[in-house]
Design a protein around this nucleic acid. Sequence first.
DNA 1: CTGAAAGCGCTTACAG
DNA 2: CTGAAAGCGCTTACAG
Lengths: 338, 338
Amino acid sequence: MASIKDVAAQAGVSVATVSRVLNSHPSVSPDARTRVRAAVDALGYRPNAVARSLRTDQTRTLGLVISDVLNPYFTELARFVEEEARALGYSVIIGNADERPELQDHHVRTLLDRRIDGLLVSPADGDSALMADVARDGTPMVFVDRWMPGVDVPVVRADGRDAIRDLVAHLHALGHRRLAIIAGPAATTTGNERVEAFREALRAHRLTLPDVHIGQGDFQADSGRRVTERFLALPEPPEVVFAADNLMALGALDAIRAAGLRVPQDIGLAAFDDIPWFVHTDPPITAIAQPTGELGRAAVRALVDIVEGRSPRSVTLPARLVVRRSCGEPAPDRRSNR
Amino acid sequence: MASIKDVAAQAGVSVATVSRVLNSHPSVSPDARTRVRAAVDALGYRPNAVARSLRTDQTRTLGLVISDVLNPYFTELARFVEEEARALGYSVIIGNADERPELQDHHVRTLLDRRIDGLLVSPADGDSALMADVARDGTPMVFVDRWMPGVDVPVVRADGRDAIRDLVAHLHALGHRRLAIIAGPAATTTGNERVEAFREALRAHRLTLPDVHIGQGDFQADSGRRVTERFLALPEPPEVVFAADNLMALGALDAIRAAGLRVPQDIGLAAFDDIPWFVHTDPPITAIAQPTGELGRAAVRALVDIVEGRSPRSVTLPARLVVRRSCGEPAPDRRSNR
DNA sequence: CTGAAAGCGCTTACAG
DNA sequence: CTGAAAGCGCTTACAG
């Protein structure tokens, strides 16, 4: 591959001059500029980003460590993150933690080794000493979706409490009393928030959340399946199951179908996270939608603010209930219930 | 951040010695080795991957340019690619082309600027002069899923022809005669292969595929919606629509529902690509499944073979038909039809 | 076994 | 406006 030396030779100038035109430095003569441009084109020269990064100590790259790429919510988040980053002149490298803390730490380390300019993390289960270290060492960092208490960096997330309260009110109004939850890992903030909000909302209706109605999941489909099997085996199974994310809802559907039961006649189902398929499942699923695009964009902006020396803002956006048919809702009078 | 100099100073050796223990070079005295190790731990030293790459001219990083991250098929592919790459000691950087050739080329260029060791591409619509250049310039490269004729690099893909023949036979046996397809971009190999295989299979049953029954899509949901609307507006709408990927099938479902029609009573639907949600849609969708995991792994292995100087193999794996309920199939006698 | 030195491809003060 | 030179953090022949 052609290097800056080749361009300099071809254009008859020094590498310094080539570098200047490449970086649009003002003090270059028009003549030199055109000769360099011509040489660049002729050679198909592209600056070596590795060398540039070593020299300038910046990579114009953001790292994104995501809990689980196979989760459509995170995929969508990643997509918006990349889009906003690109608009601001940054690339993003994604690391998939697969909900495993060790894999998460592996990616954080790899990303740091590559000297990314900033780190966007949605922390997996458990607390990571690494994460606290990174934050303390001054690497620009922000949490998206989930965060870690005690690590002092900006947080961009959705608050699901109001929507969960709306959901419980909705279920209560439909006459349901025995409600259960497939919870995410207690060590994740979203996992914890969703159970607590659910419990509080039940209390407001003088309902309780007995331990047998709290199934411990890990935000992945298999756990939703296992927990639901246990719920169904109860002497008095719950009337409605609330899955704390869309993948566990998928697992719940698998288990319900395998048991030969039907939603919502035999058991109701609601989910946190809304995805396009929920409109077309049998039945369409009542869910809580997050403003994923806004979340991704706001997170990037906060991170770039830190990287570029401005002061970042934490952002909390509301989630909202989307009522469909999976909890025994009456048939809609309109055709579409998207 | 601590550099190799700091470690050398702390351990009382030269940077050369530090570098040797870091790279497990044999000729280092046990004493020096332990002192360096201690210094590394004490300082929390991590080698700067940027500097190392500049010096060694390798990044141990693979680039993956994917057609569309929001497509679950590609998300899954990406996940397996990363997994296999990690097992072989490589990182992967993903670029999302969003089915847009310019965005694809942007990512290819960025990846090349970062001096990735090899490139895995599933080319978007249109032909890219860039891609041919890259291949000619000797950058290790392999195509996954889709490929570009005329660009001489290994291809790892699924062959859908047999499965499509099976699908058409299945539809024919169910009594359907007016079959239509929502095609992918004609300039993509998969887009083209799927229409052609469909057309041939119809011919084998003495059926034709008139132009009005070929809707031009782009592998994304919106196009599936638009094409389906047009099919439904036909004086004689097709009895079954075959969507050439899962996202266009989603769009088709949207359009059918918006028209107040039902699958399969009013119109049948089948899809290329199988995803977990197809078991739970209303009705469960008859689809063609690709061996995504095998594809991703084989692609990485082929690429790493090139990178490390071995000779790579192109791989073609079969896809297979998964019959469910969306084409008017009789109700199953077993509970699960996954 | 060990260290001094060169060099990877850039950028940027410095001097002119 | 321009170039020579230093230096970013590593690795690796070379000499001892």
